[in-house]
């Protein structure tokens, strides 16, 4: 038995080097991740359209650029929100619309011009609670001013969506600089 076992021990050591194949990943199969690469506000008033976008081509914040939102005083805009994942070519806003009862956008004016802006969400989910993909933005009359507009998307997974409170799961949180002319 001893004579049999020694070669057996050695033989078992050998078939090792080729045991694992190359680990090169398949570019088309592996590694798909979710990103948000573009958040855009499209505002129209009297046939004129104003847009401001936050663009993050890598989806990881490396080259994040946020446009300034330039608004006219004394104007009410009709707005929509565009959300895209351009890496995977997906319309995230359409997905939010599909799960409207689990999402809500919150628009929070800030800075010196905070009191000049008011946002009213105009779309409703199946429970008649606001979604925020569509809204109106009213800028009160007055002189030029500087401020910010924060756009946040809360995801309501288990916390009940009540139309007023935010959740602990924020999917989007971007603050646009605002100039009122």
């Amino acid at each position: 038995m001893k004579r049999l076992l020694i070669p057996a021990l050695l033989a078992l050591l050998l078939p090792v080097v080729s045991a694992c194949d190359s680990s090169e990943p398949d570019d088309h199969g592996a590694g798909e991740q979710e990103f948000i690469t573009r958040l855009e506000l499209r505002l129209t008033a009297g046939g004129r359209t104003v847009t401001a976008a936050a663009v993050d081509d890598d989806g990881d914040g490396t080259g994040l650029e946020i446009d300034e939102l330039v608004l006219d005083a004394g104007t009410t805009y009709t707005g929509t929100v565009v959300v895209l994942d351009e890496i995977n070519d997906e319309d995230v806003a359409a997905e939010i619309q599909e799960e409207a009862d689990e999402h809500q956008f919150f628009f929070t004016p800030g800075g010196a011009a905070a009191s000049r802006m008011s946002v009213v969400v105009t779309d409703r989910d199946a429970n008649a609670l606001p979604i925020g993909l569509a809204f109106t933005l009213t800028v009160s009359a007055g002189g030029g001013a500087q401020g910010t507009l924060n756009v946040a998307l809360s995801h309501f997974d288990e916390e009940p969506k009540d139309g007023t409170s935010r959740s602990d799961e924020t999917d989007i949180d971007v603050t646009f600089p605002v100039t009122i002319r």
Partner: peptide, 13 residues
Amino acid sequence: WQDQSNRNGESGF
């Protein structure tokens, strides 16, 4: 000795 390989599945990274 040890030979080890790690592979990602189809989703995520």
